[in-house]
Simulated scan of single mutants.
Amino acid sequence: MHRPTTGSDDLQAAWRVFIETAARLQTMLDDDLRATAGMSLADYSVLLILHESDGGRLRMRDLSHRMVFSSSRLSYQVDAMVKRGWLQRERATEDRRGSYASLTDAGRSAFSDAAHDHYRCVDALFFSALDPADGRELRAVMERLATHLDTTHPRTQET
Rank of each mutant, 00 (worst) to 15 (best):
H2C: 01
P4G: 06
S8Q: 15
D9H: 13
D9A: 11
L11N: 07
Q12M: 11
A13P: 00
A14V: 08
W15N: 05
W15A: 10
R16H: 09
V17E: 15
V17C: 04
E20W: 03
E20L: 10
T21V: 01
A22P: 00
R24N: 06
M28A: 13
L29T: 07
L29K: 07
D31P: 02
D32R: 15
T36L: 02
A37L: 01
A37V: 05
G38Y: 10
M39D: 01
S40R: 05
S40W: 06
L41R: 11
L41V: 10
A42E: 14
Y44K: 08
L48R: 14
H51T: 14
S53D: 12
S53I: 08
S53G: 11
D54C: 02
G56P: 13
R59S: 06
M60R: 15
D62L: 13
L63H: 09
L63N: 08
S64Y: 01
H65N: 14
H65M: 04
R66P: 00
R66D: 00
M67L: 14
V68C: 06
V68L: 11
V68Q: 14
F69N: 05
S71N: 11
S72M: 04
Q77N: 05
Q77I: 02
V78Y: 04
D79P: 01
K83L: 12
R84I: 00
R84G: 03
G85R: 06
W86N: 05
L87M: 09
L87T: 04
R89Y: 07
R89N: 13
A92G: 06
T93R: 14
R97D: 13
R97M: 09
Y100W: 13
A101S: 15
A101D: 05
A101M: 07
A101V: 04
S102V: 11
L103M: 05
T104V: 06
G107R: 02
A110E: 04
F111K: 04
S112Q: 10
S112I: 10
D113L: 08
D113G: 06
A114C: 08
D117Y: 07
D117G: 12
Y119Q: 06
R120Y: 06
C121P: 00
V122C: 09
D123T: 10
L125E: 00
L125A: 03
F126G: 01
F126T: 08
F126K: 01
L130W: 04
A133R: 15
G135E: 05
E137N: 10
L138M: 13
M142R: 15
M142E: 03
E143W: 02
R144I: 01
A146G: 03
T147E: 12
H148N: 02
D150F: 05
D150L: 10
T152V: 11
H153T: 12
H153P: 01
T156G: 12
T156R: 15
Q157Y: 10
